[in-house]
Amino acid sequence: MADRFVPGDRVRTRSVDPAGHTRLPRYARGALGTVVERAGVHPLADDRARGLPGAAEPVWHVRFEATELFGTGDHAVTVEVWDSYLEAVS
């Protein structure tokens, strides 16, 4: 299946709070960022934490401006985000 994103794409992280283990940190939920690159293909950790094999999906480095995450700061934070945690921004 073709990748949903390419570097430079604008994306938004989901704002859901899944039950159980997840790898989308709270501070980076519902936030607008930019895809830096694809960081491999891995089963979703949320599934593996339940003892399930999990379907492999792309993982992305997504860069966020500190102002987007915290409302303040002149730095950037890059988070590694599974494809399922992301929504495309048109």
Binding site: H21, A45, R48, A49, R50
Partner: peptide, 12 residues
Amino acid sequence: VYNLDEFRDAQE
């Protein structure tokens, strides 16, 4: 016996 993510989950 378990995987690394189950281990993280158990700490959390």
